[in-house]
Design a protein around this nucleic acid. Structure first.
Lengths: 227, 227
DNA sequence: ACCTGAACACCGTTCAAGT
DNA sequence: ACCTGAACACCGTTCAAGT
């Protein structure tokens, strides 16, 4: 009696340590990434959050690179793909890519993963499949569709990544605006003349407008393509 | 006499240590980046190559981020911009962007810098200026030109970066091809049908063709744009 | 003014040892 | 089979001390 009681109490004060698993590792990794940004994603920090040593993780994950791939795919589960049976193909395509951008943009660090790790997982494949299907609906087939899908996804990833590193740097942004202000008009006439347009690009409100504008450019170009 | 002699000998065996300077730091950084890839670019390695301690570098460079920016701009000096008075604007634009891609592609690690560090330096500005001027020649002005120039440069940077990380990973590429081979045709009908087109994209020979195809898509889209 | 060494607070990965 | 601690070989940055 005493015995069982004691066990219960000890369980309450610190619940029986959940056994490790790849899933729980990936989940904590994503939480840390959301909390602390790109620095949060380290073997040692994940291990600490799970109350173990870093070496314990290597049973479930061969290395950091592989873990990165899992984390990326896990977070891509949150990309909401619009029902293809409603609305037209091009609106659906835009919304899907914008949803992808938002997921990358929401969690700083995921964008970096999207650029640096090769997409393995089911959610990444599902996204590519979706994009291909919409392009097919729109009459863009074979090579143009394959390359176009890659291009659209790369565009979204790189925009997210650029914005993420922009936000992270902070310090440098002031000195850059200063540099633009004091441009030599002789050496850089175009840049000097278009100062405002370039600075407007950095404004956060313009983000969505500009992103959609870029998608539109690519889509127009794809529709013009014959190959 | 003896004294002066001794000094000369000691100078020969180890020439009077060149004083540090930002330029020499940036140069060695780039050399190490070329030799050892992205891992080569570390304060400690640069210091070791210069036969000092890492802390000595901080007199000439405020931190690694700033050094990265200098290295990037220094290597962009090698981008050969075609003479705008010869040939048509669109060929010149393509060649300039391809020259940019090649510089990023040649030195593994520079592409990562291009994506992650904000472009300050004169060579980066010169490249942007050149792109803007060509677009202007082609009749693309104001906002469309500014956003278009950013888009073209981002496209080149991201293609280079993607290829660089692809090459670096090595191991993963095999498992990815395997994954494509065993795709569930029910779940991913498009991807299954277009396997070859996707795998062809990974082929190194196709790199240039595909890059130019992408530039063409963006250019066609830009020319269609009214805003 | 410039350089140095040691120190601080981190990394990823491996490996022998424990349960 | 799983977990652990210590060790190895690294990081960027700071700071007191030297010249």
């Amino acid at each position: 009696m005493d015995n069982s009681n004691r066990t219960i109490i000890s369980r309450r004060s610190r619940p029986a340590k959940e056994p490790l698993s790849r899933e729980i590792i990936v989940k904590t990794a994503l939480e840390l990434l959301k909390q602390d940004g790109a620095d949060g994603l380290s073997m040692r920090r994940i291990a600490k959050a799970l109350d173990t040593g870093a070496s314990s993780l290597y049973v479930y994950v061969t290395n950091l690179q592989e873990l990165n791939a899992y984390v990326l795919d896990y977070s891509l589960a949150q990309v909401q793909l619009p029902d293809p049976s409603e609305g037209n193909w091009s609106d659906n395509l835009f919304e899907a890519l914008y949803a992808y951008l938002k997921v990358l943009h929401e969690t700083p660090g995921i964008a970096a993963l999207a650029m640096s790790t090769m997409p393995h997982g089911p959610h990444s494949l599902a996204l590519t499949e979706y994009v291909l299907a919409r392009l097919h609906e729109g009459g863009i087939r074979s090579a143009a569709a394959a390359w176009g899908a890659d291009m659209l996804l790369l565009y979204a990833s790189s925009v997210a990544y650029e914005q993420a590193s922009r936000d992270q740097q902070g310090t440098t942004i002031a000195s850059l605006t200063a540099a633009y202000q004091s441009l030599d008009a002789k050496q850089y006439p175009m840049l000097t003349a278009m100062r405002e347009e370039f600075q407007a690009g950095g404004q956060p409100d313009n983000g969505e407008v500009r992103f959609r504008w870029g998608l539109d450019v690519i889509m127009q170009g794809l529709l013009k393509q014959t190959t």
